[in-house]
């Protein structure tokens, strides 16, 4: 059966995330834009900061921030701090990111592939902050949650990693795959009053 066509990834949101405009229709367009980013390569690393910094220079071309909750890398890849000595690295799928990192890191580092374990939703639009405030208790004021920082928190009762990409605002929300449909439905439902464009 090796002759099968190269396999296609099937998103957890297939059939659920349907492009279109939903809810209210404000004169100045939908207040919320919601889409899925993907396919992505997502890898978790547990290592010493120095090890990752050294490896990151080679393997990623950027260095992680040693500060909690900080993100590095504006393009591809992006490195998000997710715990003491732990980072999540994400980039659009292409190379075997996990293998690449494993090769660059010392034996003591733990590399765990999570490309399929996370669904990444991109949330933007003028009402994006209000929508987040409906489902999550962290302070999303632009002074408190700045671009290039991220938060691991509870969003509509799901564990989520929220990466603030820009002050516009644009957020990337990483959620566990099995909860993705629930989270998407809650976000969409909460967005209807603002008008939601799903792309």
């Amino acid at each position: 059966m090796a002759d099968l066509a190269s396999p296609q990834r099937r998103s957890a949101l297939e059939g659920v995330l349907v492009p279109g405009d939903f809810g209210a229709t404000p004169f100045n367009g939908p207040g919320i834009l919601l889409s899925e980013r993907g396919p992505l390569s997502v890898v978790q690393i547990e290592a010493g900061t120095e090890d990752l910094t050294a490896a990151a220079g080679n393997a990623l071309g950027i260095a992680p921030s040693g500060m909690p909750n900080e993100a590095a890398g504006t393009g591809r890849p992006r490195i998000l701090g997710t715990g003491t000595g732990r980072w999540l690295i994400s980039e659009p799928e292409g190379r075997d990111l996990a293998a690449h990192l494993r090769a660059s890191l010392p034996e003591s580092a733990a590399v765990t592939g999570l490309s399929h374990a996370r669904v990444c939703l991109r949330l933007s639009g003028r009402d994006a902050r209000t929508l987040l405030a409906k489902g999550c208790g962290i302070d999303i004021h632009p002074d408190a949650f700045r671009p290039d920082t991220s938060r691991m928190t509870s969003l509509f009762h799901c564990a989520a990693l929220i990466d603030c990409r820009s002050a516009e605002p644009v957020y990337d929300i990483y959620v566990h795959r099995s909860y993705a449909v629930h989270l998407f439905e809650m976000l969409l439902d909460g967005a209807l009053e603002f008008g939601c464009r799903v792309a």
Partner: peptide, 17 residues
């Protein structure tokens, strides 16, 4: 809400814990 100062994440409501 109890606000707990997580050494990594900063101050968070206890519903996350």
């Amino acid at each position: 809400m109890l606000y707990i100062d997580c050494p990594y994440c900063g101050s968070r409501g206890h519903e996350e814990f």
